[in-house]
């Protein structure tokens, strides 16, 4: 099977497109999906409460109505902050637990196979922002992995930001353990980390949940699967990886059947749907 030119999906026939649409590739495993939505839930609780906590008029980071609303809702600053602590620690605990549990089996391979930037990614990064601004429209984007370069870049922001939050949060919450200067430094670290993640999350949510082209990406966060067509269109490299995997598998099966036919002929096993 010869590979067509990368990135040239626009000339694929309608029949082929239909076939690709029917065909599903698994993009996310269940653990990933659950962790993602757990993360979403925690963030939904932590972000507004966190913003409402930052009361300093001198900093002016959060609107007064929001502070008042949340304080009234939770019955005072102490309860609000305690809620934030509790949810925060739960978030840290579960997230760390998940990551550490699957560190060698999932996280490390994931990081190696999907987070490293290659030449195409650099190219993508050079082109995409300009395209978004309406320039260089004629230039085609280089093919992308399971995650495009923007997503990859954002992954680093998220990982670093999350670590920043996980370190600075407990520093402030476990108030007896650290001297005041550490707690003073922890505050901006906490906010900057959150803001960095939030700035990306806005694009992430927009792309994932609202932007029509990425509908599949959104639903993949429930079912874990995307269509081959989507993969072909948006994450071409990954698509060909998958195709290669399939081919390798088929070859292997064929070899097995061959060798088995010599000794003890058996019917070929049904093709697994992955």
């Amino acid at each position: 099977m010869s590979k067509p030119r990368m990135g040239s999906y626009k000339n694929i026939s309608i029949v082929e497109r239909r076939r690709l649409r029917e065909k599903k590739y698994k993009k996310h495993n269940l653990a990933n999906i659950l962790t993602h939505w757990f993360n979403v839930g925690m963030w939904a609780l932590l972000l507004p409460t966190g913003i409402a906590i930052i009361s300093s008029p001198r900093l002016g980071l959060s609107p007064v109505w929001m502070q008042e609303l949340f304080r009234n809702m939770f019955g005072g600053a102490a309860n609000l902050i305690k809620f934030h602590y509790t949810i925060g620690f739960l978030w840290i605990f579960v997230l760390l637990f998940n990551v550490l549990l699957g560190f060698r089996k999932y996280f490390v391979p994931f990081a190696i196979s999907r987070m490293l930037l290659d030449k195409d990614d650099i190219q993508w990064l050079k082109t995409k922002p300009l395209q978004m601004l309406g320039l260089m429209k004629d230039k085609t984007l280089p093919p992308q992995d399971a995650y495009n370069a923007g997503q990859k870049l954002y992954m680093y922001v998220v990982i670093l930001g999350t670590l920043g939050i996980m370190v600075s949060g407990p520093v402030m919450a476990l108030k007896t353990l650290f001297p005041p200067i550490v707690k003073q430094i922890a505050q901006p670290l906490h906010w900057v980390s959150v803001f960095a993640i939030v700035a990306g999350v806005i694009i992430h949510v927009y792309m994932g949940a609202i932007f029509p082209e990425e509908k599949e990406a959104f639903f993949s966060m429930f079912g874990g699967k995307v269509s081959a067509w989507y993969a072909r269109a948006h994450h071409e490299k990954w698509y060909w990886e998958k195709v290669q995997e399939e081919m390798d598998w088929e070859e292997e099966v064929a070899r097995e059947i061959e060798s088995a036919a010599g000794a003890d002929p058996q019917p070929a096993p049904a093709k697994s749907g992955d």
Binding site: I53, A77, I81
Partner: peptide, 21 residues
Amino acid sequence: CVSGATYKDPNNGLVLVDQEA
């Protein structure tokens, strides 16, 4: 005060610290 722990009691004007916050 970043956490809102220090506040002025609206009922009596005392500046208080909510140590839990």
